[in-house]
Simulated scan of single mutants.
Amino acid sequence: MEKSRGKIGIREFVAVVILTIGTKMADDTPAILFEQMENAAWMGPLLIGALSIIPLYFLTNVFTKYKGKNLFEVTLYLLGKPVGYCVLFFLWVIGGIAITIDSSIYTDIIGTMYFNKTPTLVLYAILMGICAYGAKKGLEQVGSFAWSVLFWIKVSLFLALFLTFRQGNMDFIYPFFGPGKWEVLKSSASNLSIFADFLFLSLIAGFTASPAVFKKGIWISLVIVTIELSISLLSFVVLFDYEPVKMLNYPFHETIRYINLEFLPNIETLFFPFWLVALFIRFSFYLYLNALLFGGLFRVKDFEYLIPTLATLFVFLGMIPETPTFSIFDFREPFLKMITPIFFLFPCLLWVMSKAKGDMKT
């Protein structure tokens, strides 16, 4: 597998992770959690983050031990080439399906909420075209750009959350545990794969400045995105109440259309550009990871040249659903549940195999 030409530091690593996972508050992820946990959905990210400590503990331990190695190399070493290649190919397929689903959802958001007169194929092609261009620039460029815009994106988010809480009603959070404590815990555990991006992040473990950067970056990012997602979901409940919010497919975008500033009537025009930039970074990073894994599987040295082809493939696959607002939503929920045990158990398996080989001895 061709190595990245340079390394990324902890600032770039954390910025990419925050913008990649944090943007899930703006797709249909909140709708899935609200459907299952009602007004207690804001507790979901907190519980998911807490449960994610277990697989991430094993994951960071493994990659701290194998310095300079990434998920591809470590998996082949620990599981052997025949089994390792099958597992990695399965992960590549999962990643491809995730990109297809998520890109279809975001294209639907852009089309239905902002550019409803523009053909879906045109929006999809523009989105993936820009992201393919960014991904082809390489990991260092994606990381540097993510760090340079992170502050302004988070300022816009803070402003949106501030206005939401100011115009909302805190009494809407009751009953506090929604459908019940057990239901909230069960739903959180079954949707653990919302944070499955952390597993695929180990594909660039060898591209960070040091193993310590990868380890610290994982834990810092986990804390930030957990708090950010939880506060965002709480703001949606405070603004709409849990019954109306359950009927919204994209609560974030409904929120920025609902809140207002006296001097700016169409406030969504302020937040939309920042969200769009975060979206481009997210899918640029996804495309890079997918091409990186594909290049390793099929021994393509210059895997960056595969990115435009893969992006085109995802566009055609994402165009298949006729009504993505409903069909993709119905497919994504069971898909998340299917990926959950993989995210939880695979790092544990790698740690056990490393222990069996005697590599975990100090």
Rank of each mutant, 00 (worst) to 15 (best):
M1R: 14
R11P: 07
E12F: 00
I21A: 12
D27S: 02
A31T: 02
Q36M: 15
A40M: 03
M43I: 13
P45I: 00
Y57C: 06
L59H: 07
K65E: 07
E73P: 04
E73A: 09
K81D: 11
G84H: 07
I94H: 08
I94Y: 07
I97W: 03
A98R: 09
M113W: 06
F115L: 10
N116A: 11
K117T: 15
K117G: 13
T118Q: 05
V122P: 04
M128P: 01
G129R: 12
G129N: 04
A135L: 01
G138P: 03
Q141Y: 12
F145Y: 14
A160H: 09
F162P: 10
L163Q: 08
L163D: 02
G168D: 02
N169S: 07
N169F: 08
M170D: 12
Y174E: 14
F176A: 12
K181R: 15
K181S: 14
E183S: 13
V184D: 05
A189H: 10
S190Q: 15
I194T: 15
I194G: 14
A196N: 13
L201P: 04
S202W: 02
I204M: 01
A205V: 00
A205D: 04
A212F: 11
K215M: 05
G217H: 11
L222G: 07
T226W: 01
S230K: 05
S232D: 07
L233M: 15
Y242D: 12
E243I: 15
P244G: 01
K246C: 04
Y250E: 02
N260P: 10
L261K: 13
E262I: 15
P265R: 14
P265S: 07
E268H: 12
F272G: 02
P273H: 04
F274Y: 10
V277Q: 10
L279I: 03
Y288E: 07
L289D: 05
N290V: 14
G296Q: 04
L297E: 05
L297R: 05
R299T: 13
D302S: 11
Y305W: 13
A311F: 02
M319P: 08
T323V: 14
P324R: 00
T325Y: 01
E333L: 14
K337S: 05
K337C: 06
T340S: 15
F343W: 01
F344T: 01
L345P: 06
W351S: 00
D359N: 12
